[in-house]
Design a protein around this nucleic acid. Structure first.
Lengths: 140, 140
DNA sequence: TATTGTTATACTCTATAACTATA
DNA sequence: TATAGTTATAGAGTATAACAATA
């Protein structure tokens, strides 16, 4: 238990790096990365949110969200427009192209996740997901 | 399954961020961070390794290891000396102070890990660790 | 005054390329 | 020629502070 490779920080970091690597390869055909896919997912999880709401859901600063959306908008995957009633806020929505990319990229990322979990049984994979969700949800 | 917060990339990243946060607080009294503790652990996992061997075990570039060891050496926790027989290599060893810090900091980090896993049973915590090790080990 | 989006800036972590010394 | 350590540099990813528009 006192080896570097058994500590949680090491394990989380390396698991995340490997997942990012696999996602990167799987999403390359769609010209997006894992973070951008996460943004697209956040934008469709609930109703069209403001940039700040999207940032909070993703756990990043609102200034980081600006850069992420700049990229997605340049690729024609999302649109921004002032919210009627409070023109300080931007309503961010997926374009039809963005919606299509979301569907295809999610499928590709699902396959990348299966690759990462190839050494686990289906039951173990579900356990892992549940345990992680418990930890992350508790973190606030 | 199509929400951002259920994807493995998101879960790993946020779990790692929370662990880093807890480690940072727990290790502050010892003036080291989680990465530096990992280096100390790598240096004692096996026999005194060269910088390059230590870098490979930790999964970072050798140039990154240079900077990490610069910091640890400046704090008086490790020493570097040319290896007799191949003076291109540095043998890196913990000082007595480094060994003491390692013991105390590991205990503090163990406590931080328990905090992160507070929502899980002991059995679930061990399961999580095992599943992560399986994934990371498979990744090469 | 407070909030949203934005910009400028800086900090951390990391890797690539080039250099020095050793082999 | 090849390798270990080093340095300079650059690229992600991120946050803080300050600004403009709006409330």
């Amino acid at each position: 238990m006192s080896s570097a490779s058994s500590r949680l920080g090491y394990l989380f970091k390396h698991a995340q790096q490997r997942m990012a690597q696999l996602n990167s390869a799987a999403l390359a055909p769609f010209d997006i990365n894992g973070r951008e896919l996460a943004v697209l997912l956040v934008l469709t999880d609930h109703e069209p949110p403001s940039q700040q709401e999207a940032a909070e859901r993703l756990g990043v600063d609102r200034t980081t969200m600006v850069a992420l959306l700049d990229g997605l908008e340049a690729k024609g995957l999302v649109t921004r427009r002032p919210q009627t009633g409070d023109r300080r806020r931007n309503v961010v929505e997926l374009t039809p192209k963005g919606q299509q990319i979301l569907v295809d990229a999610t499928a590709a990322s699902d396959e990348a996740e299966r690759t990462l979990l190839a050494g686990l049984t289906e039951q173990q994979a579900q356990q892992l997901r549940q345990l992680l969700q418990t930890i992350v949800a508790a973190g606030g």
